[in-house]
């Protein structure tokens, strides 16, 4: 009985749209744009036309997720293992609160901070003229790390928070230095959280187009940009659908791989946050 609503929900919000897109993907672009019925795999055969977009995305997503991870892990570690208990909730809230504002607004704020009248103006004041920060790969990376940080911090925090502290003592007791303990116990046991955060951020990054557009000047073309252009500019819906389907398949592969890795290394199941 309880399965009823859940199944209906899945069908309405996941299965039906997916089927619609799958049907579109074997269709043809109408002369004025949009979709017209057909059965052809021409759209899939045309995927190499967006190979660069796929490639850029496949590079950006892991690098972005990795950069996010490198920043998020120490924060999560501090929150879970070092922060005084009474501060912990407040600090966690501070991590989450920016999420209440739309990513667009926050990214716009960065546009101003990095733009010519932001930090470069400060730099000019102390003698460094014409420094350009906006529309650089660094700006995109910063935007990504900033935008997705909470999604990375939370699952890592959860897995570190669950970590049995006696294991750390046991490791130290057995002669492991703090670094060695971190590498062979803390890190490995927090891997489910790391993989959850990593795959979450990575999958979202696979569809990201806003941050590269706003902070990167739209010079690097990602799958997200390709999709926006195909659906809203050239209105080539069938080709866009074929790309979307491919993207979904890639995401599934990423999820499965992340799950495998974390299961193998930590011997535990991943933290399910989604």
């Amino acid at each position: 009985m309880l399965l009823g609503p859940a199944t209906a929900w899945l069908v309405v919000f996941l299965v039906l749209p997916f089927i619609a897109i799958a049907v579109f993907s074997v269709g043809e672009r109408a002369p004025e744009g949009g979709y017209q019925a057909a059965f052809t795999f021409a759209q899939y055969a045309n995927l190499p036309a967006r190979a660069t977009a796929f490639w850029n995305t496949m590079v950006l997503a892991p690098i972005g997720a990795l950069a996010c991870l490198l920043v998020a892990y120490p924060v999560a570690y501090y929150l879970a293992l070092r922060a005084p208990q009474r501060w912990r909730l407040i600090l966690l809230a501070l991590v989450v609160i920016p999420f209440w504002t739309s990513l667009l607004m926050r990214t716009y704020a960065w546009m101003y901070v990095l733009g010519g009248r932001g930090i470069p103006a400060l730099l000019a004041y102390i003698g460094f003229e014409d420094v350009r920060l906006i529309n650089t790969p660094g700006a995109v990376l910063l935007g990504i790390v900033y935008g997705y940080l909470p999604l990375m911090i939370l699952p890592i925090y959860v897995s570190l928070e669950r970590l049995d502290r006696r294991l750390l003592e046991a490791s130290a007791d057995l002669g492991a230095t703090p670094l060695s303990t971190f590498l062979s116990v803390t890190l490995k046991l927090s891997l489910p959280g790391v993989m959850t955060g990593f795959s979450l951020v990575m999958i979202l990054l696979l569809g990201e187009y806003l941050i590269p557009t706003l902070l990167g000047g739209g010079k690097v073309f990602f799958i997200g940009n390709a999709l926006v252009d195909l659906f809203l500019q050239s209105r080539n819906w069938p080709f866009g659908s074929a790309i979307a389907i491919t993207l979904v398949l890639v995401s599934v592969v990423v999820l499965i791989a992340a799950n495998r890795i974390s299961t193998r290394v930590s011997g535990a199941r991943r933290v399910d946050l989604i």
Partner: peptide
């Protein structure tokens, strides 16, 4: 980690991500 003593912890605190032999060898690897 520099003391010449070892402890059997309450509820053992065995490493769940390592098998029996790797648990036992943990100290030797350090």
């Amino acid at each position: 980690y520099r003391r010449p003593v070892n402890m059997v912890f309450q509820q053992y605190a065995l490493f769940p991500h390592l098998d029996v032999e790797d648990n036992v060898a943990y100290g030797l690897r350090q």
